[in-house]
């Protein structure tokens, strides 16, 4: 049995229609004009225990709405969700005890008191045994380097420190599932790295299931094995990251460092389907489609007319792959 099972999930919002003119706005105070907006449109998915899933999509694609339904905060308009066989909406307290959440833009801690006091309250609320609490705390303080910050009230912490404290808070009760919503938003690279390492460790050591939404694709690439892409409330891709890369990487970039560049002097690039992205005194950047053109062909062609000093070939990163898929999906091609 899958740990998380979602079938034909739909969420519709009633949204006030923009009245347009001020006069109509006055009228809509009494008789608002609503339109139905489908934020999540017939989603099906299954997630196994211990999986780390990247849930990605452009802004407003329905990511957060899905997570809120999974955690039982929002009621689905239609469809079913089962978490360990339980329906989150009806078993909220039970599910809450087994899940952890991290929101990049919100805090689960109490703002005015030392972080440690917040942890103490969480310990009582989640009924964490003293030993587990101590062991976890010790490990997390060590991993996230929080020694000096847990006696400080949250409001006096920097964004990165707050995030660390919140991530540790989400794991104190040994949750089985953790939702991470933009966990590294606004953080510097050092903090990002620490947080990613921490999450990886939790996934490896404790087989915690993760669902990560992030616009930082390094988060997704370093944390997740599987990627689910959602656009306009519909799942576009649900596959292993490696497979997505293989299936959708069609374009590669090749950069030459040349001693003498005849193409900068008006020479025509003679291979069809190769796009010249940049051309300068000594450099040449080309983009080509791997299905149509072979890289060796380009190398041979370039070396025939010029002296190659250096060359590098880059595949697309996952971010630009996703961007292209979304673009195509918006045009109705996928």
């Amino acid at each position: 049995m899958m740990q998380i099972e979602v079938n034909h999930l739909v969420k519709e919002y009633k949204r006030k229609r923009d009245p347009g003119t001020l006069l109509k706005a006055l009228g809509s105070m009494f008789r608002p004009d609503y339109e139905i907006f489908r934020a999540v449109d017939d989603i099906n998915l299954g997630i196994e225990k211990g999986e780390a899933v990247g849930y990605v999509g452009p802004n407003g694609s329905g990511k957060s709405t899905t997570i809120k339904m999974l955690s039982g905060v929002l009621t689905p308009t239609a469809g079913t969700i089962k978490i360990d066989g339980l329906e989150p909406r009806k078993n909220r307290m039970k599910i809450n005890k087994r899940t952890g959440v991290v929101f990049g833009n919100r805090s689960v801690l109490w703002w005015d008191v030392p972080v440690m006091e917040s942890y103490r309250v969480l310990q009582k609320l989640y009924e964490i045994p003293e030993k587990t609490f101590r062991d976890n705390l010790e490990e997390f303080i060590d991993l996230l380097d929080m020694e000096r910050i847990i006696q400080v009230p949250e409001r006096q912490l920097s964004l990165g420190q707050k995030m660390k404290c919140n991530i540790a808070a989400a794991f104190l009760h040994n949750p089985e599932i953790v939702y991470l919503d933009e966990p590294t938003i606004g953080l510097d690279s050092e903090s990002k790295l620490k947080i990613r390492r921490f999450i990886q460790k939790m996934n490896e050591d404790r087989h915690t299931t993760f669902i990560v939404t992030s616009h930082d694709f390094q988060d997704i690439e370093s944390l997740c094995q599987r990627i689910i892409l959602i656009n306009h409330g519909k799942i576009v891709i649900d596959d292993k990251i490696g497979a997505v890369r293989k299936n959708f990487t069609k374009k590669k970039q090749i950069t030459f460092d040349l001693a003498d560049n005849p193409w900068s002097k008006g020479k025509e690039f003679a291979i069809p389907d190769v796009r010249v992205l940049d051309v300068g005194e000594t450099n040449l950047v080309l983009e080509y489609d791997v299905e149509k053109t072979d890289s060796m062909e380009i190398m041979n062609y370039v070396s025939a007319s010029s002296d190659i000093q250096d060359v590098s070939i880059n595949g697309q990163d996952i971010e630009s792959i996703i961007r292209e898929i979304v673009k195509k999906d918006n045009q109705g091609e996928v």
Binding site: S71, M93, K97, R106, L125
Partner: peptide
């Protein structure tokens, strides 16, 4: 401000 989501996710009503 939307923080209600955090409070609803706590293990107490």
């Amino acid at each position: 401000k939307g923080n209600i989501v955090v409070e609803l996710l706590r293990p107490v009503p």
